[in-house]
Design a protein around this nucleic acid. Structure first.
Lengths: 109, 109
DNA sequence: TTGACACGACACCAAATGGTGTCATACAAT
DNA sequence: ATTGTATGACACCATTTGGTGTCGTGTCAA
């Protein structure tokens, strides 16, 4: 119930470096207007706005209008889906796992 | 030294659902030839091969030729980068964090 | 040795992506 | 009342993406 509509795949939303940087900026500032976010990038306002729309579609950003500016804030909870997906593969990349595999393969002969 | 060249962004590699499914297939079978992987999808062999190339460029897959077939295996370790990135935002999506934010906002008035 | 199979390497294409610039409008400040 | 700021909504464009089909080659099996 508390989770939003999820029009856009979260994995897709975080694929772009610009959007990951936006997420980072939003994480440290609680609420930031578009023009202030735009100032952090070399690209134009329209481009940044588009990226924020994508983040909104993935449920990663919320916006509210205050006066003539639109302020954005982070909603990190959709990242949990990524976390859950990753958890399954955790066991495949530990150093111990690598050694274990080698031992098992040696034994198979 | 042990990590590969990383021509491709890992976040980009896992953005596509087909590639995530490929990763899942590779995780459960140790080593799978291309034609066997292709059989799991509705798309053609060329398309699957392209996705596997992208996974290889991200260091997520390894391949070796055996006779006339090319067998693929998973290398999950690049996923650690995603894990590390996520770890920073973990604190933002806990239930406690949501309640804490509400309390702080109430106090601000 | 003759097929059938598995594959890489193209060439090709439609649609999505990531940018740009412009215009109209709402709000702020003077 | 006027001017400048912040934004949304477009139209537009080059490049990338995710698929297709085909051709040539190496390999296995009969």
């Amino acid at each position: 119930m508390s989770e939003s509509s999820q029009l856009r795949d979260v994995f897709d939303a975080i694929a772009d470096p610009t959007r990951r940087r936006l997420i980072h900026l939003l994480a440290e500032e609680e609420e930031i207007p578009l023009h202030e976010l735009t100032a952090q990038f070399t690209m134009g306002r329209t481009a940044v706005s588009k990226h924020l729309t994508i983040l909104k579609e993935a449920g990663l950003a919320l916006d509210r209008k205050v006066g003539r500016e639109t302020r954005f804030r982070l909603n990190a909870s959709p990242l949990r889906e990524v976390q859950d997906w990753l958890a399954f593969y955790n066991k495949f990349w530990s150093a111990n796992m690598l050694r274990l595999n080698q031992l098992l393969e040696d034994e198979e002969e």
